[in-house]
């Protein structure tokens, strides 16, 4: 995952949005792929691009907003440079995910769903990463880690922070 800008340059995001829209011009029902492509490149779907998308697809701004806000993946601002998702689903719970989450939240001083003010770290809940025989699981900047404990996660975070 690329290092993500915390602030958008309006000209840049408009240009990216136009490029993405052009690339999906002939595709039926392309709104989700369009939103994904914008988020893959900008780290978020900034609210300012919604009118551009609406105009291009002949939809109302409300319809586009309705889609963006329906799906958990789409975000209005980029996540922290390090993005840790902790699985909260049943299989991970059976292997202590709740206690793990509580301990990690305390050690990091950050709750699920929060980003540090300096944009260095986002902690998020996720519901199933499909690695349920190796619980508990976490995904760190797109990489899956199985059978993790708090020490593993703190090590991985340190390693990742050094990298980005």
């Amino acid at each position: 995952m690329a290092t993500l800008p915390q602030r958008f340059d309006p000209e840049q995001y408009q240009a990216v949005t136009r490029e993405v829209l052009a690339a999906h011009r002939d595709e039926p029902g392309a709104l989700l792929p369009i939103l994904h492509d914008i988020q893959d490149r900008l780290g978020a779907v900034p609210p300012e691009v919604l009118p551009l998308i609406a105009e291009d697809l002949c939809l109302s701004r409300a319809e586009v907003h309705g889609v963006v806000s329906f799906y958990h993946d789409f975000r209005a601002s980029p996540p922290g440079r390090v993005h840790l998702k902790l699985c909260q689903a049943e299989a991970c719970q059976s292997m202590g995910a709740k206690a793990l989450t509580a301990e990690l939240q305390e050690k990091l001083g950050l709750q699920l769903g929060e980003t540090r003010p300096d944009g260095s770290l986002t902690l998020e809940a996720v519901y199933c990463l499909g690695n349920c025989a190796c619980a508990p699981n976490a995904m760190l900047n797109g990489e899956l880690h199985g059978r993790v404990d708090v020490e593993d996660l703190l090590d991985l975070l340190e390693e990742q922070e050094a990298r980005v």
Binding site: G29, L31, L32, G66, V67
Partner: peptide
Amino acid sequence: RRGAGAYVCGEETSLLESLEGKR
């Protein structure tokens, strides 16, 4: 096509709506 983190889209009609670019 990539989904976007909605569990309910595993329900077939919801999935079809999503493929059509809707909620």
